[in-house]
Amino acid sequence: MSASVTTLYQLLENMKVHCRWFDAGHRISKLSPSQWQQFEDGHIAYPQPYLKHAYLGLAFWPEDDQRKQQVQLWCLRFPLDEQGKLDLASRDQFLKHLLTALSSNLEAAKKDEQLTAVLEGNPYVFKPSDEKQANLHAVVSQQLKQPHSAFMSTVLNYFAHPEGDDWQQLGIQGLADLACRWLDHQNDICKAIPQLPSPVLCSFCHCLEHHAINGMVADALLSRLENNDDKAEQIALLRGISHCQDNARIESALNLVLSSPVIMDVEMLVSLSSRCSQQLITEKYALVFLEHLAAAGNDIFAAVMQELLFQAPLREPLLGYIRSPDRSETLSQAIGHLFSQPKHTEPQAEQKH
């Protein structure tokens, strides 16, 4: 490894490129350069760990490219230690592999034709799902003030008249672009939500979950969630509402699913744990959720709880709730099984959740 390059942050500075950092785990969100630098220096835990990894979307372009026509997007995944901090040995291995591929020519990484060769075989590169990739591209293009894709116009036209089988021609990139620009089109979105076919509704909600929608859009989703017995729609609608600016709307969605048979579905439990964790560590919901999770079986309980307990802000509140004297025998047994598990579990490949 080059003696002058010891961090990814430093590498990009040496390349003289502009950068934007994004968390690409459960929810796509912007990371500040200082957040990444502090994390890479080992000073802070990763803000949003996912499967005990830091999932990073890194967009960069040459300083002399004022129109941002040469934007590169790297998707990287780094393991975290028990404290949620960067495993420095893995980062060093990534840099060594990268610099070897570049033959120490940092300028080569700026060129489109070099990108595949530079990252080929690097074990810390991951390929997002099509849905995640579309949403990442939508967020990056909006952040960089670039135009949306051509697919969004087709989606907008459909949302104006959501009928027939035309929905089968809609692309996920167009739905992601519209979700990213929800504020500019909230009236059209709210009018369309009651009429959207289930596949379109679910895909669109999976895109909306990356954005802090307002109460107006959330209310349209809540209206569709009420008296809804379609499992896929219920899960998708919860995800679409989960990042709402108004916590009361999120709680309304929680109340609906917690009183519905869908709460016994494993996919709903996983969606709740990953999208609504801040609400689930409150006294109002914690024990109710833990009891439902325990009812799903010891292995499911252990897998979900290990992921939640890995996140520092959630650990202490959850440990407090699982010590509650009001817990059922089923929950007590699930907790006993949890703490009999090995402390370290091997991270999985990216999942759809």
Rank of each mutant, 00 (worst) to 15 (best):
V266W: 07
P347N: 02
F126Q: 03
A192R: 01
W61Y: 12
A179I: 12
L95E: 00
W36G: 00
A24P: 05
D65N: 02
P347C: 06
R249C: 11
L254D: 03
F22L: 12
E350Y: 05
F22I: 10
L196W: 05
S90K: 09
L308V: 10
D65W: 03
E113H: 15
K145I: 12
L144W: 08
A176D: 08
Y50I: 04
S149G: 15
L290W: 01
R323K: 09
E120T: 14
L88I: 15
A302C: 10
D165E: 01
F289K: 02
F289R: 00
P49N: 04
P199L: 12
C75M: 12
S34G: 11
L272N: 03
Q70F: 08
Q35M: 14
L238H: 11
W74M: 06
S34V: 14
V125E: 01
M268T: 09
L99Q: 01
Q245G: 12
A59I: 05
H206M: 13
P62D: 00
K191A: 13
D81Q: 01
D41M: 14
Y50N: 02
S259N: 15
V140H: 00
A109N: 03
Q146C: 14
Q278R: 13
P62C: 00
A179W: 07
D229I: 09
E40Q: 09
L76G: 07
S90W: 01
E40V: 12
F94N: 04
S340I: 06
A45D: 09
Y124H: 08
H161Y: 03
G336N: 04
P342K: 04
T282H: 07
C207M: 04
W36S: 01
A295V: 09
Q186M: 10
W167P: 00
I281E: 00
Q333I: 13
F310C: 05
S141E: 10
Q133S: 12
A303Y: 09
W167T: 02
L106N: 03
N298D: 11
A54N: 02
E82Q: 10
L280G: 00
D41I: 10
Q93Y: 11
K52P: 02
T116V: 15
A24Q: 01
L99E: 03
D130M: 12
L80D: 02
T154C: 13
M264E: 15
K191Q: 14
A294Q: 07
D166Q: 08
L254R: 03
G240E: 05
Q143N: 11
A248Q: 11
R239G: 09
Q72K: 07
K191P: 09
L98R: 00
L338E: 02
R275M: 12
A45K: 04
W61I: 08
S129V: 07
A349V: 13
V140W: 00
E120P: 11
L254C: 09
I322N: 00
C190H: 02
E316I: 13
Q245T: 13
D87T: 07
A59Y: 01
E307V: 09
I189M: 10
Q35F: 11
A349Q: 11
G320Y: 06
A45Q: 08
D246Q: 11
F204L: 06
F301L: 01
V270G: 05
L183V: 15
V139N: 06
